[in-house]
Structures are given as C-alpha cells and as structure tokens.
Design a protein around this nucleic acid. Structure first.
Lengths: 147, 147
DNA sequence: TAATATAATTTGAATATCAAAATATTTGAG
DNA sequence: CTCAAATATTTTGATATTCAAATTATATTA
C-alpha cells in the first residue's frame, strides 16, 4: 500500500479544511465583521496585556507596515485600542477592547471545541500517535525552514 | 498527559505557519516569482492535461473572476497557456507550459519531502493507523461542518 | 551634541478576493 | 428554426493583504 500518496492527499485536504471551517464558523457568529487574519491578530495581541507593534508583527510574521494598516481597521471596528508608550515615545502599544476580548474568547472556545471533538472520537493510542505525527511535522518545518 | 492542550498548541502553530513555510520555501527556489496561491493554481491545473476555468475555480474554491485575473498573471509570467475549446466556444481551457510543469514538479517534491519525514519516524503498524485516524478526522469534519 | 539606531507610519505597487454586470455561445421550448 | 434561457467567462468596482522603501519621531551613544 502506498502510504506516501494517501498521507499527502489527506494532509493537504485536512489543512485546507481546518482553515475553511475556521472561516465559516467565524462568519456565522457574533464577530462576522472580522476576517481570519484579523482574528489571528487579536489572538496574537492576547488578553489583558499591551503589546508593541513590532513584537506583534514579529510574532505574526508580517511587517510593521502591514500591521499598522490591519490595526487601523481593527480600531475602526472597535476591537483594539492604540496608545503610545510612556517610557519610550517611539513605541506604540496595542491592546484589546472589551469587544476585542470577547472575540478572543470566542476564538479560543472554537479551538477548544474543535480539539475536543477530534479527541472524542479517538482511542488513547490514536491520540498519542496523532500528537507524535503533528509534532514531527512541526519539527520538520523548524529544522528545514527555520521558522 | 493533557492531549487537549498539546493538540491545540500544535494545531495553532502548524496552521499558522504551514503556508508561510511553503511560501518561504518557494521564494528561495527557481520559481520565486510565484506566490503560494499561484502555485496552488498550478497544482490544481495539473500536468499533461487541459482544465476549464470553471472546473479549476471550483476545485480551488474561488470565483471564476478571481481565477481569470490569476491566470492573466500566470500567462504573463510564462507558466500557463490559455485556449478556447473547439467543442464549446464558451469554454476556456488552461494548461501548464513546460516552465509550469517544472514548477508543478518542484512543488510536488516539497510535499514528498514533508510526507517522507513524517513516515520515516513511524513503524509500519503506525502508518496504517495514522491514515485511518486522519481519514476519520476528515470524515468527522465533513459531517459536523458540512464542508 | 550630532550621528546613528530604532519604532512606527506612509506610500506605491502587486496580488487576492468577491459580487454584479457585461459578453459570447449553446441549449431547449415551442 | 428561432428566440429566450442557461452557461462559461471576463470585466468592473470595491476592499483587503502584503511588502519594500521612504519618511517621521524619538532614543541612544560616541
């Protein structure tokens, strides 16, 4: 049996599906004015803390210029606040508004649900194997492409 | 062991980065003028065959209008040819040029590498189980989220 | 203090995307 | 056989995403 072909096909399909599912669920809920990318920015800013633009951009793997524009939109939509740092006036700190925090938690819940649903249908042995394989993919990327 | 947390962390990291990595890998090679989305269009057109615009758009989950523009760019860059069907003159058939076929194969190799690195750490018994587990997850997503 | 470094924003350009309108062609009902 | 409806694609107008390079403001350091 050709494991290589089966595995490749199913991984490609799964990766594509998870993102579709995430987007679809987002568009149905309370925060349908957010794109997936905006939701990931909210996730990266995190709850109950202030992050600088450059920190956040680095974590997301985008340039500061790109983030500036995205943050402009998130402020316009009421999810984020922007303040200059008192210690270093060059630094801009962003933080989630109350609405932003609710969006953060909704996204967190979605992930929890998704993972719980997947684990529910697996035996213990299968759970272990799944984690081993995904960690391995993660390592492969780290080693080979230095992420 | 807390499978939930492990699985969630790995999924978040992997899904956030997998396309970045693929893109980064792409930008280092011979086909650095392609974006990852253009590469996926090349992948969807496939080697040694002609596909219609609507077939291809459907497979990719984008509108024909979006595909038209992307194909314009791929033609300009020399990866794709466009021809009208003889049987039905409404239909436009696209196919890879020689350069397009080379790009296709380079992308195929990236996936082969990834899959090989996953399989190499597994016992034969685990390989079978992995395919089964991933297929189950895929089916589960189909049912629960109607993708 | 003046040069240099750092943080962020702005600008200009390309790609990505959709919905709706427009164009060309085929099909099917009468 | 003809004309309305259906189909395939492209065009248009709008917004989002992205980057690199230029610009602005502030801090650091020689």
């Amino acid at each position: 049996m050709d494991y290589r072909k089966s595995l490749n096909d199913i991984l490609v399909r799964l990766f594509a599906h998870v993102l579709d599912i995430e987007e679809k669920c987002l568009k149905k809920g309370e925060f349908s004015d957010l794109t997936i990318k905006e939701m990931h920015i909210i996730d990266s800013i995190g709850i109950e803390k202030e992050s600088s633009m450059s920190e956040t951009a680095k974590e997301l793997g985008i340039t500061s210029g790109t983030l500036t524009i995205a943050i402009d939109n998130l402020i316009r939509k009421g999810y984020v606040q922007r303040n200059r740092s008192k210690e270093d006036r060059r630094v801009v700190l962003v933080k989630l508004t109350e609405k932003g925090s609710r969006a953060y938690r909704a996204h967190e819940d979605f992930h929890k649900d998704l993972v719980a649903s997947v684990l529910e249908v697996l035996e213990d042995k299968e759970k272990g194997l799944l984690i081993k394989v995904l960690s391995n993919i993660d390592d492969f990327f780290k080693k080979k492409y230095h992420i």
